[in-house]
């Protein structure tokens, strides 16, 4: 049998295709097919029991009913805010891990970031609920210290959702940041300092440009995680707090309205895709470079 690498180009490509075939089939069956099915679902409308016609009604409903796009915009804005908050908190943490600590201390801090992931998201979120509810630990502590006159309800605010989302996503921001900051040569920072740079200008001119692929990668992953999160906003959010995933769940499971749910799902997909595209454009990164960082 001839050496595979020596054959003509098409032969090599065929061989590669055959080798990849199982994986491609798998991807197709698990990801593409259900998506096609959902797409078809989103473009039909129920007119009578068991009778459906092709229609744009589901998408029309989304735009006609302010409720739905309010939730949509709210989900996007809050995810964005939470992503930025995660970045602001994760950056010093990543900096400490990558640059300030050595050896075991650095590994220890990394593990501290990892610990929340040893329990399931449900347990984590319930933990927050126990901490923050009016009869919980934190309000009692605040009242005891005299910060507040009586225990206050810290749960069921938008800020609570942000805290929960940031907590859940921190690791996914820290990891790409650490890897991109670790690859930053310390002598570049010293050189910039030596040439008259201040902390801020070094951060802006040297550190951030160097870490840009890591920052973008972290932000994309975290933003998508937040956009697609269901448990945290649902459990920590107040009675007025709607998350778009919750709306999709409601349409599919509670309302039996798969058509509407599918349409909402595609709108969410479009949102996350366009935000990622926008993020890449704004930060001047290429998708491939960024994904290698994650």
């Amino acid at each position: 049998m001839p050496d595979a690498t020596s054959g003509p180009a098409w032969e090599r490509r065929l061989l590669l295709g055959l080798l990849l075939a199982p994986a491609l089939l798998w991807l197709f069956a698990l990801i593409v097919l259900p998506q096609i099915d959902l797409a078809l679902l989103s473009f039909r409308e129920r007119v009578a029991p068991r009778e459906y016609v092709a229609s744009l009604a589901q998408y029309r409903t989304f735009f006609a009913e302010p409720l739905y796009w309010h939730v949509f915009v709210r989900t996007a804005v809050m995810s964005l805010a939470a992503t930025l908050a995660t970045l602001l908190i994760a950056f010093p943490v990543a900096w400490t891990i990558a640059k300030l600590l050595r050896g075991r201390l650095s590994a220890l801090l990394f593990v501290v970031c990892l610990i929340p992931f040893w329990v399931s998201e449900t347990v984590r979120t319930l933990g927050w609920m126990i901490l923050l509810r009016e009869s919980g630990v934190l309000p009692a502590l605040l009242a005891h210290l005299g910060v507040t006159a009586a225990p206050v309800e810290l749960l069921y605010h938008d800020a609570t959702i942000l805290v929960g989302l940031v907590y859940t996503s921190l690791l996914f921001m820290v990891v790409p940041l650490v890897s991109s900051l670790e690859s930053l040569d310390n002598s570049l920072i010293e050189a910039a300092y030596d040439l008259g740079g201040s902390g801020w200008s070094i951060l802006r001119e040297i550190v951030i440009p160097h870490a840009a692929p890591g920052i973008t990668a972290g932000c994309i992953v975290v933003f998508m995680l937040m956009l697609g999160n269901y448990l945290t906003p649902t459990l920590l959010g107040g009675k007025s707090s709607q998350w778009f995933t919750e709306q999709i769940y409601t349409q599919f499971i509670v309302r039996f309205n798969w058509e509407q749910g599918a349409a909402f799902g595609f709108l969410l997909l479009a949102l996350s895709t366009s935000m990622v595209w926008l993020g890449l454009k704004l930060s001047g990164q290429r998708f491939g470079d960024v994904m290698r960082r994650t």
């Binding site: 029991p49 409720l67 309205n257």
Partner: peptide
């Protein structure tokens, strides 16, 4: 009867979203 739950659903969504 079919159809009622759709009416109720919109009302429930509206209550949830109201401030």
């Amino acid at each position: 009867p079919a159809g009622l739950e759709e009416i109720e659903g919109k009302i429930l969504d509206r209550i949830k979203a109201a401030d």
